[in-house]
Simulated assay, not measured.
Amino acid sequence: MPLPDLNLIRVFVLLYETASVTSTAERLNVTQPSISYALARLRQQFDDRLFIRARHGMTPTMTARQLYPPLRDALGQLEATLGSMQEFDPASCSQRFRLALTDLGAMALLPAIYQRLQKQAPCIELEVIPLEIDRVEEWLLSSKVNAVICSRPIMTENLEQCVILRDRYVCLGRTELLGPKPISLKKFLAIRHALVASSSGHSLAEDVMRRNGYQRKVSLEVPHFSVLPRLLLASDLLAIVPMQIAKEFIHDSKLDYHELPFSVPEFDVTLYWHAGYSRSPAQRWFCETIMNAIKEI
């Protein structure tokens, strides 16, 4: 059986990852009929339906599930190799890059990252994808995103990484609620808390408290850090947040932060990307530009 051409492989991989003809067409900047035609050719090539329309999108058949890993990997290696043979000019690049990060990352890091990217490559597009910590490995290995910024270690093979900053956790609340520094453990545990969901990737302090048997009074759980300033200003709640973002939150407000009354290790904020794409000049430029932007903060 002859191998499908590169464009057909791209269509197959994106259809598998997006489960949508519309999304695949948008990603490839072609029409939906073009994707339907490519799918018909793929079905003929492999003598299988490959994808079946279902309620929640295009569901892969068993044959498609078997084909996806090797075709995904082969596509990544081939595109990286072809890219390494071409000169890359950021000024003329119109590629769309996808970066996954938390709402904290968007608040603290995105302005500097975007400014640096736009200065060098004004025609590129940057799509920011909300971080889902349990899916970042899948996203990186499937090339759904070009890079991820997060504080939770990712130990998967075939990923490269670079620590872009170090941070620590503090407790944040209204100045009059916190009182004089330092806050005691007894007072810290007695005050009610707002907890940011562990899906944000920030659960280190919670893990330390659990190991030490500290039980704080969690009255509210929220999915994102960005809601905390107005929430804390209007309540008698404390929250544990990274130091970098605490400084942003207390600017021109009645909030303050104290060091935690127990020891929590500092943590790294790390940039991750698929090792297979390191030979791509565009990918290298994207990651290096993010690193340089963070250094300037």
Rank of each mutant, 00 (worst) to 15 (best):
Y214E: 03
G213M: 02
E87T: 15
I113W: 06
E26A: 05
A108Q: 09
P153Y: 13
E79V: 15
Q45G: 08
Y257A: 09
C171Q: 01
V13H: 04
S200T: 12
D256R: 11
V222R: 00
R10S: 14
H56N: 06
A282G: 08
R72G: 07
D252P: 03
C93D: 14
R216H: 06
F88M: 07
A100D: 01
S219A: 13
A74N: 06
W285P: 04
A147Q: 00
A246N: 00
L67I: 15
H274L: 13
L99R: 01
E138C: 04
L39H: 01
V30D: 00
Q118I: 13
Q161S: 15
D134Y: 09
D89A: 11
I129W: 00
I52P: 02
E132P: 00
L131W: 02
V208E: 01
Y214G: 10
G57M: 05
V218Y: 03
A205W: 00
T24H: 01
A64S: 08
S84M: 12
I183F: 05
Y37I: 15
I245Q: 00
E132V: 14
V269C: 06
L220W: 08
V227C: 13
L231C: 04
S20C: 01
A80C: 14
N158V: 07
A194E: 02
M85W: 14
V163H: 08
A74P: 03
P111E: 08
M58F: 08
R10I: 11
E176Q: 11
G105V: 07
C171F: 02
I149M: 06
V21T: 04
Q244W: 11
Q115W: 10
G83V: 11
D207L: 10
Y37C: 07
L8Y: 05
G105W: 11
R192K: 12
M291F: 12
R53C: 07
T24Y: 00
G57Q: 04
H202E: 10
R166M: 13
L101P: 01
L50M: 10
H56E: 06
Y214V: 09
R55S: 05
D48F: 11
N212L: 15
S253K: 07
K295V: 11
Q32G: 00
D48P: 05
G213V: 03
T81M: 15
F267A: 06
L141C: 04
P111D: 08
R53L: 12
S34V: 02
